[in-house]
Amino acid sequence: MMSKTLTYPHIFDELKAQIKDAGLLDRVPVRGSIEMIAIIVSLIIALTTAPLWHPVLLALFLTLLFTRSVFVSHDILHTQYFKSKSLSKKLSYPFSALILSNSSSWWDFKHNVRHHTYCNIIEKDEDIRALDGAFTHQKGNKPFLKKHKYIIFWGALFFMFPAFIGQSYKYVIKHKHWGELGLMLLHWPLIWGTLLYQIGFSNTLLVALVMNFVLSPWLAFGFITNHLGCETFSEEEAKDFSWMELQMRGSRSLKGGMLVHWFYGGLNTQIEHHLFPKAPRFNLLKVQKMTKDFAQKYDIPYFETTPLMAYVQINNAIKKY
């Protein structure tokens, strides 16, 4: 292990140069555009042919499209497809708002600005303060949460998507992003109004319920493996770390090949994503191999485990609350 954190920036420059020279930081505008267009076309086909589907199958297909849309929106805002931040925002805002009724401005601030800049810093990164700080060394002391901590934490994962939507609306209204709010509101007649017209109320309700209870845990069980149960730091403690060390110590990558990578939307390579947030998702498995080799060369700790063990580690952290 490196004994002086001051050497980390110089080491990171070496790794970054290797990744860049391999072409793994190059944007993928064509591939990204194809993915976006494929989602939009598939969604239009699903909505226009809705009466031909069994409601449960339709819900599962829409869940697949919504999940991919979440990952695509995330990637666009990281400028993984296009170098221009302005263009990325112009594409992400309507894409996310119309398909998901989700706010890109909220996600950009919460995720790109706060989380990536202050990874696992307790006072700054709200993602790590879940369950009254149960995953930090600044735990709260709420009797009700302590008594029902397992039900509350694991149960809440089945409602993550509507919670995200609620936070989106709260953010855009608070910051008076009326244009984005208008796009988000259009989601309801475009998606759900069409379904209501096509398949009626009871089938639309069934689609909505199935979607939520598949989509929410799919996203949630992916997101929680990224940092929960990893090291956390106070602002004062974080001052002693270089940016590279902070990202690597506060993140967890998951073992697995292409199937795991697809299921988690590339977030399984969380260490690599935090070190190189602009690296396209399609390249992250290659980036991971180079990063692991680099970490081994310099004896830098690399936190990686299986998906199952990640959930065990998270549950063990909850036990300590």
Rank of each mutant, 00 (worst) to 15 (best):
T291K: 01
V287H: 00
E304T: 10
F294C: 00
L284E: 09
R281C: 05
D293T: 10
L285E: 04
Y302N: 02
Q288P: 01
F282P: 07
P307D: 10
T306I: 02
T291N: 06
L308A: 07
Q296R: 08
L308E: 07
K286E: 15
V287C: 03
M290T: 07
T291M: 07
T291F: 07
P301N: 03
T305F: 10
I300F: 12
R281T: 04
L284C: 01
L284F: 03
F294T: 02
F282V: 15
P301W: 12
R281A: 07
P301E: 07
Y302A: 01
E304L: 08
L285W: 12
K278L: 14
L308F: 13
K289A: 15
L308K: 06
K278A: 14
D299P: 13
P307R: 08
F303M: 08
K278G: 15
K278D: 15
F282G: 09
E304Q: 05
P277D: 11
P301F: 10
F294S: 01
I300C: 08
P301K: 04
Q288E: 14
P277K: 08
I300M: 11
E304A: 07
A295K: 00
I300H: 12
N283E: 09
F294K: 05
K297W: 04
E304S: 03
L285Y: 05
Y298N: 12
M290Y: 05
L285K: 03
K278S: 15
E304P: 03
E304Y: 15
Y298G: 09
L284K: 03
T306S: 12
K292H: 08
Y298C: 07
V287E: 01
L308I: 04
A295P: 02
P307W: 14
Q296T: 11
Q288L: 04
E304H: 09
E304K: 03
E304W: 13
N283G: 08
F294V: 00
T291D: 06
Y298E: 07
D293I: 06
Q296P: 07
P301V: 06
T306Y: 12
K292N: 06
L308W: 11
P301M: 13
K297M: 03
F303T: 14
K289I: 15
V287G: 02
M290Q: 10
A279T: 02
K289N: 13
L285Q: 05
A295W: 03
L285P: 00
T306W: 10
Q296H: 15
F294Q: 01
P307N: 10
F294G: 09
Q296E: 14
D299V: 14
L284Q: 12
K292A: 09
K286N: 14
D299C: 12
F294A: 01
K289R: 14
A279F: 06
L308V: 07
Q288Y: 10
K286F: 05
L284V: 11
L284Y: 05
L308R: 06
F303P: 04
A295M: 04
E304G: 09
D299N: 10
K286S: 11
F303V: 12
F303G: 10
V287R: 01
K278Q: 15
M290L: 08
T305V: 11
R281L: 02
T291Q: 00
Q296V: 01
T305C: 11
T291P: 00
I300D: 08
P307S: 11
Q288S: 05
N283Y: 13
A279W: 03
L285N: 01
